[in-house]
């Protein structure tokens, strides 16, 4: 029973997926699994992250940042230093329209989550880009993972290089999903967003202060920007052959190409 996941358990308890999917308590996500720190914590960034997994996302890179306890202006200062703009972080429930910096933060969150899982680090605790210390300007260390890795293994690797490893893991995960679903159109068939994300129990419009309701057109733009920063095809949401090759996964791309599961393939 446990192997069937949350959906299997709920079905066994006579709670069909259709009922669960309309839950405004914000538990359901898609394809039989629940959400994990989505728009209730982090607006578009949380939504993007929840579209990417085959189970509840278990990603805390983004939620650890927005929940780090620092004043919003300090969070925005750090965000500008790390992801290029203070506008990539909003106050919770005070969301602003999508921008490319939010997509970069979503990408960073996913890559670090994959790294943490692979390095034996706890993604519930990290990354460590914020500090409680005023003397540090409240900045943490965005390179801590690569420093840990270099110290533990003696194999010196900088942040960019290690992040590339994380991106490779995440892209391989994406390739496995594409192969096992036999489906190129990840954007429509996999990266789905539940209806409740676009609703508000009180009828408040998107971007109302005190509402976590997202806007459908804005989320479509969010996915466009996310695929763009990943170097993926925007129409299908699938990695291109170039994206696979850039990460040392050319053979993976070739094997998917043989199944017409790489963008640009002819059926």
């Amino acid at each position: 029973m446990l192997s069937q996941g949350t959906s299997g358990l709920f079905t066994h308890w006579s709670i069909p997926e259709e009922t669960w999917s309309q839950d405004h308590g914000a538990l359901y996500w898609k394809m039989g699994h629940p959400k994990h720190h989505a728009n209730e914590d982090d607006g578009q960034c949380g939504v993007i992250i929840n579209t990417q997994y085959n189970r509840d996302a278990q990603c805390h890179s983004h939620s650890n940042f927005v929940r780090n306890g620092l004043p919003l202006e300090v969070q925005k200062k750090l965000a500008a230093e790390i992801w290029g703009s203070p506008d990539c972080v909003d106050g919770v429930g005070d969301y602003t329209p999508m921008n490319v910096h939010k997509a970069r933060r979503a990408r960073w969150s996913l890559v670090r989550k994959e790294l943490h899982d692979s390095l034996g680090l706890c993604n519930w605790m990290g990354p460590w880009v914020a500090s409680p210390l005023k003397s540090r300007g409240y900045s943490g260390d965005d390179s801590l993972e690569s420093k840990f890795y270099s110290l533990a293994t003696g194999h010196k690797m900088d942040r960019e290089e290690l992040d590339r490893m994380g991106e490779r893991i995440f892209t391989l995960h994406r390739a496995l999903t594409i192969r096992d679903m036999g489906q190129l159109s990840m954007r429509t068939q996999h990266d789905q967003v539940p209806r409740w994300v676009f609703e508000d129990p009180s009828g408040a419009p998107p971007f109302s202060k005190g509402s976590i309701r997202m806007d459908q057109a804005d989320m479509a733009k969010a996915m466009d920007l996310f695929y763009q920063v990943m170097g993926w095809d925007k129409t299908s949401g699938a990695p291109t052959q170039e994206a696979y090759s850039r990460l040392g996964l050319a053979e993976v791309g070739k094997s998917l190409k043989a199944k017409t599961l790489v963008p640009g393939d002819k059926a």
């Binding site: 919770v92 202060k209 005190g210």
Partner: peptide, 20 residues
């Protein structure tokens, strides 16, 4: 803080322990 936003944030703060 506007009253409505404060009410939202208070409710959210109450829910954090159930959404770790």
């Amino acid at each position: 803080l506007e009253r409505g936003y404060a009410a939202f944030l208070a409710q959210r703060a109450e829910s954090l322990a159930m959404n770790p």
